[in-house]
């Protein structure tokens, strides 16, 4: 192998490619490398970034969750409606977390205890939950009464908007959870070989329920921040989010066959998605083309991953 090939196909290959792409874009696209644009870019990936943290766990354990978009919209709705009704933002937040956690737990229990395929289960809950959001709001956007709710998204700390901090915090926390805790390692083990993990004493069913419950909770956080940013609860918010999130994870080297995941990879995956969209916006490329480009990026990432595996000479 030449050293260039080694660099690109090695462990940190994606990071290297990302750095190169970032450099090229910074030099060629006007207005890209400005503070304003950078913050805007990060703001735009907050929802994807936060949800990707737990989607990574889900995929790493060989599961799948299509219901995240609906859950984000639903829990955003709940937060707005509950805080409007009670006059307390805190109660609104708690209600949203409970609802999100509940959706996740239901997913987990159905999948792990009743052994229903994750794809089917979450396809069902995706529709049910979206339906609930539409029913609750009668299909219309629900405005926020208390302006201090906006502050969740608008406030800044050290000049950087709060949602970006929240996302960064999640990256750190879930990176730690994945790499340094029994929970994270067991997640990866389940993905690698569920039966072997069970026989090695991992409570596989309980782990899976926890992973889905966490996923629901995290969706609720993302939903609240999203509602605050768009200043209302929108029943149609975050449609198609599940695909963007899964794309970001796959871009970041999370294996759909389970057992392989890294937080740094996922962060890079999320940023690549954000940059691609941002650059296309800056260059005034029509939205129609953006779909094509996003699809192509995903395909390339998967091909790269494939090349990397065969270069590493894996037997399986």
């Amino acid at each position: 192998m030449t050293s260039l090939k080694k660099l690109l196909l090695g462990e940190q290959g994606l990071v290297v490619i990302f750095a190169l792409a970032f450099l090229v874009v910074s030099l060629t696209v006007p207005n890209f490398l400005t503070e304003r644009n950078m913050l805007g870019l990060l703001q735009s990936v907050v929802t994807i970034g936060i949800v990707a943290c737990t989607m990574m766990f889900c995929l790493a354990s060989r599961d799948f969750d299509l219901s995240v978009g609906s859950t984000v919209a639903f829990s955003g709705m709940v937060a707005v409606m509950a805080s409007n009704a009670t006059g307390s933002i805190l109660l609104g937040l708690v209600a949203a977390l409970i609802c999100g956690g509940l959706v996740g737990t239901v997913n987990g229990v159905v999948i792990a205890r009743f052994r229903i395929n994750a794809l089917i289960t979450t396809l069902a809950t995706m529709q049910i939950v979206r339906g609930l959001a539409l029913i609750a709001s009668d299909g219309r956007a629900v405005g926020i009464n208390d302006p201090s709710f906006y502050q969740l998204a608008l406030s800044r700390f050290l000049g950087i908007p709060t949602p970006i901090w929240v996302m960064a915090l999640f990256f750190v926390a879930f990176g730690f959870l994945l790499n340094r805790t029994v929970f994270g390692k067991n997640t990866l083990a389940i993905g690698g070989n569920p039966e072997a993990s069970r026989l090695a004493g991992v409570d596989v069913a309980r782990m899976r329920i926890w992973i889905f419950a966490l996923q629901g909770l995290v969706c609720a956080v993302a939903g609240v921040l999203l509602a605050s940013r768009i200043t209302s609860g929108q029943p149609n918010a975050a449609t198609g989010l599940e695909l963007s999130v899964i794309s970001a994870c796959v871009l970041g080297g999370v294996s759909l066959a389970g057992g392989r995941a890294a937080m740094t990879g996922v962060i890079v995956g999320v940023l690549i998605m954000g940059i691609a969209e941002n650059v296309m916006n800056l260059l005034n490329i029509q939205a129609f083309y953006q779909y094509v480009v996003r699809g192509l990026i995903l395909l390339m990432a998967v091909l790269l991953d494939n090349l990397r595996s065969s270069a590493a000479g894996r037997r399986a």
Binding site: L188, A189, G191, G192, N193, E195, S255, G259
Partner: peptide, 13 residues
């Protein structure tokens, strides 16, 4: 192969 090793993970894990 089926009940023992967790593929893709290290010896240590």
């Amino acid at each position: 192969k089926f009940d023992g090793i967790v593929q893709g993970r290290s010896i240590e894990e």
